[in-house]
Design a protein around this nucleic acid. Structure first.
Length: 306
DNA sequence: CCCGGATCCTGCTGGC
DNA sequence: TGCCAGCAGGATCCGG
């Protein structure tokens, strides 16, 4: 469920609550939450007694760096993961609590209804470019299991031109390519649809049919949409996405196509349609996002004005 | 390697 | 009212 703006909102909350704190204990309650780890019993021992030095992120992948540990504590929230801060360990753990991080001052609960999220202890590898591994870290290191993930649109070290050229070499629909975390990370189903509406691009168009320059502009549009969503605290449809203090975000008010099937497009009034691309819903305005540019009737030109 | 589809879960909604 | 199909903010794995 959470995409980059939601994960970044959560990361900033973690910076407030976790930085400089000492980990008293780390307990993984559900075997499924620790399934990616070679030795899940190690999870409990790897971080106990260590001080949290960094809370970092690349796309939707979060990690903690702790003093003296050769391992990163990697967290992925999957479709429904929440990280909830409590002043102390609650007496009865909430339903679907998958892991508990007890600190010298407070506790962090990982709650995950649909169980696609996970925690893992992962060795570091150096970044290809020698730049910091992601947002929130100064080290040229990234957890090994995150190395295949591309930099995200809010990362100043993203090589936009190189990403665009790589995207141009694929025949998949542009929406699928935006959801593929290897090119540019952090974009999920909501922000893919919103980005393509803002950019006047049909989600079904093959990426190779778009010039690298235009693909670059689409990624820049994604950065603008997601930066705006971070300002709003992310998108909440219900209680499933909340920040570390249990608060909802307000970007759902700004959504132009996602979840708006049958409602008028805010630009031209044409009714929003829902298609299926790559097995996921794709919401679009059939007039503003005509597949063939020559058929466009609203006189608009492609560009970004989120 | 590239690509598309299946798969892992729980819970809610809407139609019959 | 009950039941069941369909759908949901994601990533990975497997066959062709």
């Amino acid at each position: 469920m959470p995409e980059l703006p939601e994960v970044e909102t959560i990361r900033m909350g973690l910076v407030d609550h976790l930085l400089g704190r000492r980990i008293e204990s780390f307990t993984v309650h559900s075997a499924r939450a620790g399934r990616r780890c070679q030795d899940p019993t190690m999870l409990a021992e790897a971080f106990a007694g260590r001080t949290i030095e960094e809370v970092a992120r690349r796309g939707k992948f979060l990690w903690l760096a702790t003093e003296g540990s050769p391992l990163a504590l990697v967290l992925h929230l999957g479709m429904s993961g929440q990280l909830l801060f409590h002043a102390s360990v609650p007496g009865g753990l909430p339903r679907h609590t998958a892991a508990t991080l007890v600190l010298d001052d407070g506790a962090l609960l990982f709650v995950d209804q649909r169980t696609f999220g996970y925690v893992d202890a992962v060795p570091w590898v150096r970044t290809d470019d020698g730049n910091p591994g992601g947002l929130g870290t100064m080290r040229p290191l990234v957890p090994a299991t995150v190395a295949h993930v591309g930099r995200d649109p809010l990362d100043p070290c993203l090589d936009l031109g190189a990403a665009a050229v790589r995207m141009h070499r694929t025949s998949s629909a542009i929406k699928r390519v935006l959801l593929d975390q290897r090119y540019v990370s952090g974009i999920g189903n909501i922000y893919a649809d919103e980005t393509l509406w803002h950019a006047h691009v049909n989600p079904g168009v093959p990426a190779r049919a778009l010039a690298a320059r235009e693909l670059g502009r689409i990624v820049t549009t994604a950065a603008e949409v997601m930066a705006s969503a971070v300002t709003a605290g992310g998108t909440s449809f219900d209680a499933l996405y909340v920040d570390t203090m249990g608060q909802s975000g307000y970007f759902s008010r700004e959504l132009r196509v996602y979840g708006r099937t049958g409602l008028p497009c805010g630009r031209c009034g044409t009714l929003i349609e829902r298609h299926v691309i790559g097995g996921r819903s794709a919401h679009l305005c059939p007039r503003c996002q005509t597949p063939n540019e020559d058929e466009r009737t609203d006189g608009s030109r492609r560009g970004h004005h989120p």
